[in-house]
Structures are given as C-alpha cells and as structure tokens.
Amino acid sequence: MFTGIIETLGKVKKLENDGGNLHLTIASEITPELKIDQSVAHNGVCLTVVSMDDDAYTVTAIEETLNKTNLGDLVVGDSLNLERAMKLGARLDGHIVQGHVDQTANCISIEEKDGSWIYGFAYDSTLNNVTIEKGSITVDGVSLTVVNSKKDSFSVAIIPYTHEHTRFHSYKVGTKVNLEFDVIGKYVSRLIEIR
C-alpha cells in the first residue's frame, strides 16, 4: 500500500527487454535504503526490487503492466516518481493507493494560475472508471484531488512544491500518464454494475 506522496524522483539508467518483460534499472537517492524484495511505486506502479548495485536498483515489469501503463514508453534518462510502501502506523498524508494502475490518460491542457497549475487529463471511459468532484485520483503515483470531473476527463490543481518535486514539471500536452482511480469508488462502481 502507498499514500501517493512522492518521496523523490528516480532516473532510468538502463532498460533491458527479456521476452515480454522489461527490466528497469533506476538510479535514485533512496537506493541505499532499499532491499531486495521490497515494493516501490514507479509512476504509481508497484514493482519489486530484484537486484541492487551501488546507486541503482532493478525492477521488472511484466507484459500486462507494460500494456496498462506508461512504463513501456520510458527511455534511458527519463525521470520517474518514486514512493516506498507506507509504514504501518505512519500518517496517511495522501489517500489509500494500491500501486495497481487502472489505465493511462493523456494530458490535454496545462494552465498556469498565479503560482499554481491546472492540468487536464482525458481517459477512455469505456473501461468504466469514474472520477467524482473533490474525490481522489492518483496521477503517475501522485495523490491528488479531482476538479472538473467529467465522464472521460478531469483536472487537478498542482501547487508549486508538487510541480517542482514530481514529474509534473516535465508534462506537456500529449504526455501519457498512469491513473489509479480511488479504491472505494472502484468497489462502489463494481457493486452497482453487479446489481
């Protein structure tokens, strides 16, 4: 489980295809604190540390993960939002995030608003994921509050700290991002669908 509060940015050091899998080697300041078998969220995708070497560690994404996320689009040098799993008993500063990306979205607008930013995202609504006004959404692993919720799009407001310390400062219109919809909303949606 994660909170959606990004700890640091990592940098892709190496990418290696292995059948349908992709091994990602990530350089990060948190590497010395990691251990093999530990879960780390990469742009909101929970992946397991499989090896470590000095300032970098390696994780593996399987084909299904690559098909549902933006990890397959990465190139050496790209940055990633990183978060280690939450500690039991610690404050839950964001919201409950599983690290299981539901789908991707594309950035459709960026508007600077007197020191903050409004980012708009569009997603495929046929996958039955929904947002609600003032509900929670995770964009590339960042816990955010939905504004301007529509059937296939939404916006989020980004403060300067989040803009500077996450991948948001590198987004452009057209950037593909990972979305994890609110877990409670997903259960409610599924129950309604069953009835």
Rank of each mutant, 00 (worst) to 15 (best):
G115A: 03
H165N: 14
P160Q: 05
I184P: 04
F168R: 00
V139I: 15
C107K: 07
H100F: 02
S39I: 04
V75S: 13
H95A: 05
T69P: 10
L144E: 05
G94E: 13
E63V: 04
Q103K: 02
G19C: 01
S189N: 14
S116N: 13
G94N: 11
V146A: 06
A157I: 07
R91D: 11
I26S: 06
N43F: 06
L179I: 08
A122W: 01
L88F: 15
N178Y: 04
R167D: 09
H163A: 05
E63I: 01
C46W: 10
E180K: 00
V12S: 03
L22D: 13
H163G: 01
A157N: 10
D78V: 00
V45E: 09
L66V: 02
E16K: 15
T138N: 14
E111P: 01
H163K: 13
E7K: 06
V45P: 01
G141L: 00
L9N: 09
T3E: 02
V45M: 12
K172E: 12
G72I: 00
L15M: 06
E193N: 11
E33Y: 12
K150T: 11
N81R: 02
G99R: 03
V40Y: 15
E29I: 06
I108G: 04
G185W: 08
E111G: 05
T131R: 00
K13Q: 13
V173N: 06
R190N: 14
I96L: 15
G115D: 04
